[in-house]
Amino acid sequence: MINLYKIKEGDVEYTLGRFNGDTVTYDFKNILVYLEAKGKILFGEHFEIHKEDHKLLLKLCCYFIQDKDYCKANGIDLNKGILLSGPVGCGKTSLMNLLRNLSLKPKMFEIIAARNIVFAYNHLGTKTIQDFGNNKCYCFDDLGIEPVGKYYGSTYNVMGEVLLSRYELFLETKIKTHITTNLNATEIEKRYGSRVRSRMRQLFNQLTFNETTKDKRK
């Protein structure tokens, strides 16, 4: 028996696809309608999904709904996390906030600003590194704009150490990590070192907004 797969927001139901009792067959056009409606709820009536972002959004949607055939054909590894990069204001954080709502299950990951992790480190020290090396799935938002960590007079590359901890966690448990960043690969290596960049290749699928994408906050 085929049932419609729906998500309800307030009094409105959105049909995202069809459910056969085992798997969901999604309809991307319907997903776009839902995500734009959800975006207006979360971010205000000004929110819209821009046509030039549809190609990237399709890849992200197929990753999060676990479309194995599409992801395999497009070189996306479902065992890795997502590193979503692009210019300032292109919509990276908004999309990650939206995409974790595609499932009827509890939200797939928690979004934490990288700068807030550094602020926590400045108060608590290495306990913060340990806390974010735990068995949760996180999206570290705006990697690269966080300040240098300082604890009892010593400076520390907090997010670099967090990423190394997440790498060890991934090897042991396959728990994923996601990231949004304005940095390119060269800038990531300069800030966090070749050791971190090398491990990031194993941790993430890199998906990128076009460098000419406009700042949607203007």
Rank of each mutant, 00 (worst) to 15 (best):
G133R: 05
L104N: 10
K51D: 15
L60F: 05
S94L: 02
R217P: 08
K136F: 14
E48G: 05
D141M: 02
T15L: 02
G144W: 13
E45I: 00
A73L: 11
K176S: 01
G89C: 12
H50K: 15
K55Y: 08
N184D: 15
K6N: 15
R100A: 03
Y26D: 02
G10A: 10
C137M: 13
N20A: 12
N134E: 06
I82G: 12
K59N: 14
N184C: 10
F43V: 11
L83M: 15
K68R: 15
P106W: 07
Y5W: 14
L104G: 08
G153Y: 08
G75T: 13
K214A: 11
Q202K: 07
I41M: 14
E189I: 00
T128V: 13
D141C: 08
N101A: 01
Y152R: 13
I175P: 03
Y14V: 07
D53T: 13
N101F: 11
G86C: 10
G91I: 09
G91K: 08
D22W: 08
V158K: 02
E172I: 00
Y63S: 03
Y192D: 02
L124W: 13
R166I: 01
E9S: 14
L98K: 07
L164V: 04
Q130L: 12
C137S: 13
L99I: 15
N182Y: 04
S103C: 13
F28H: 11
L183A: 02
P87W: 05
L164G: 02
R217A: 10
Y70G: 09
Y152T: 08
T186A: 14
K92S: 05
N97Q: 10
I117Q: 01
E48V: 12
R199N: 04
I76P: 05
Y63R: 04
F132G: 01
K127W: 05
H50W: 13
L183W: 06
I41S: 14
S154N: 07
I117A: 09
F43E: 11
Q202P: 00
L183R: 05
T23I: 10
T155G: 02
N135W: 07
G86D: 10
R191S: 03
L183I: 09
V148S: 04
L57S: 14
N97A: 00
N74I: 09
F64I: 01
I76W: 01
